[in-house]
Nucleic acid binder design. Structure first.
Lengths: 334, 334
DNA sequence: TTGAAAGCGATACCAG
DNA sequence: CTGGTATCGCTTTCAA
């Protein structure tokens, strides 16, 4: 059987209170006693039970991470960034892939609640605002990462999607492109809207005309991106450049281009978003707007921890600047 | 404050024991009482504390998952498969990215131990066998997935790497290739050795000669794969086909080929391994040996659960058959 | 069918 | 400095 604090106390000939103090460095214990106890703990291979200490009111040192799908490289990277931060502070993180389904979100949150996690990081879309409100009333700290809700005051860390769109626009316009198009996922996602808005603003700043008919909306998968791009490429005045609101769509666009004999980047420049591992793997490698994932993870974790300490701190919204990573899917317009 | 079982009991005018029984369907309770209690639980928005029930000896319904890196798509998929299985049975999983470092493995295991996880799924290489032995003596159930240790009797679920190698060989030989090469990662990993052994056997079965000088070893990243392939392609008698022991290396090989003007698949066929999301994204899409990840996750979870129930069951080793997914990176030899 | 009471393993307060 | 002891929220006998 696993050793408990009682075993240690008995072996050391002291009370459990003293052992507890020795472990946590609380109270005053003579140095000798302390070392003696520590030694015995080692001999007994004793590991304090976090379960028990969580019950007496301390924290569980466990976090929940809600994302659409851990097998999606973008979220895998987010998870890794958060995991690293958390681990440094002794926290572990429970993954919850929601598939963007509110029903799964609810199940997971209820589970996390029962497990008394210290907080939740939400990186998945949540349609039903009640879910977040519930978190609030139950005073479970949470922060949003890479997603937003206007409907509720919440700590948030996001990439500046507007700037991201702008960077793409400046890059493409700078290369001389004048016939541009946008491939975007569902406009319900605020980040897509912002990316588009930034892109259009970027163009307009440079006096490059753009008409909304150049925007094609599709789901977020490669497959759909391909179909969306097909449509764009079959038009009378084909675009010479497409801005895609994520890498998956960009890959779809590249595949569509190839199928219809349009050469990337010679005949068509393509810019993606997220700069996932996929961007470096396509042929040609994809120019993409990179989100500062590592810093996002760090900030999200820190916000959450602040929340634990200072329950009623003012909610913050941290906006991080993206960066354009130029590879070979874009070139001078001809 | 969160409602406890006492609040429910008081509100229902019964004892906590009765509430407990109502929740768990244990003992005998009149149907009316039960429903009355359930209703009150709902009114109070009561969620039983898993922490408390874990303390009284029940399970924590939490698992640890040790993998090298959750941001690597292959492990992301493994994690997802396991998460889905686990979630179905009410378990949650804690991710532990080890970077293949024993020191991180130890820290994580000790953490998982303190959190009293019900079991651990190990999908990462562990050099120090003592770590596993320790798990054994502490009777923490664990299963290995996609990794093996001969040094200890453990439940294991792996892909049949030998067959996987063979499938690749048969495919390439069947296409008429005679000058073949292998790009493999570190031979310390048993799966690499098996893949190579299977590949060679497959060729020899078909009377296709193969010399060990055609094997190039490198690390597992794209970058190194490129260098390894460079070497192969600069040789006097270039291979017409390369079998790569994972997708990342295959991508490296594709890049090397492109750089030196060798066309894939016209001049060079390439086969990868793992069939990650990356395989569908390269140009041309990569022919790859797919591991049945979903089934692996399912089996691993089931083995673990069996372990919980039946502590001293005979250790099993489950070997799953891989499958060749033919895409466009391979074609008839000319 | 229901309830009283004894833990589970730790923390923390209050005496000594 | 050190040690009782109540407590956290729940499960589980054992009686009633």
């Amino acid at each position: 059987m696993k050793a408990t604090i009682y075993d240690v106390a008995k072996a050391a000939g002291v009370s459990i209170a003293t052992v507890s103090n020795a472990i946590n460095g609380k109270g005053k214990i003579s140095k000798e006693r302390r070392e003696q106890i520590l030694k015995i703990m080692e001999q007994l291979d004793y590991q304090p039970s976090l379960i028990a200490s969580a019950l007496v009111g301390k924290k569980t040192f466990t976090l929940g991470l809600l994302i659409p799908d851990i097998s999606n490289p973008f979220f895998g990277e987010i998870a890794r960034a958060i995991e690293d931060q958390a681990h440094q502070s002794g926290y572990s993180v429970i993954i919850c892939s929601t598939d963007n389904k509110d029903e799964r979100v609810e199940r997971y949150i209820s589970l996390l609640e029962q497990k008394s996690v210290d907080g939740i990081i939400i990186g998945t879309g949540i349609d039903n605002i009640e879910i977040l409100k519930r978190l609030e009333t139950r005073s479970i700290p949470f922060v949003m990462i890479s997603r937003e809700t206007a409907a509720i005051a919440a700590d948030t860390v996001v990439t500046d999607d507007y700037i991201g769109g702008m960077l793409a626009a400046q890059h493409l316009a700078g290369l001389g492109h004048r016939r541009l198009a946008i491939l975007s996922e569902n406009l319900k996602v605020s980040s897509s809207r912002e990316r588009i808005r930034g892109f259009k603003q970027g163009l307009s700043d440079l006096n490059v005309p753009f008409d909304d008919s150049g925007i094609v909306i599709c789901e977020y998968r490669v497959e759909e991106g391909r179909r969306g791009a097909d449509e764009l490429l079959s038009r009378g005045d084909k675009p010479t450049a497409i801005f895609c609101c994520n890498d998956l769509l960009a890959i779809g666009a590249m595949q569509a281009a190839k199928k219809s004999g349009v050469k990337v980047p010679d005949d068509l420049s393509i810019v993606g978003f997220d700069d996932t591992i996929l961007a470096g793997v396509t042929d040609p490698p994809l120019t993409s707007v990179a989100q500062p994932i590592e810093r996002m993870g760090k900030q999200a974790f820190e916000l959450l921890i602040d929340n634990l300490v200072n329950t009623d701190a003012v909610k913050q919204r941290i906006v991080l600047r993206p960066e354009l990573v130029v590879r070979q899917s874009t070139q001078q317009a001809r």
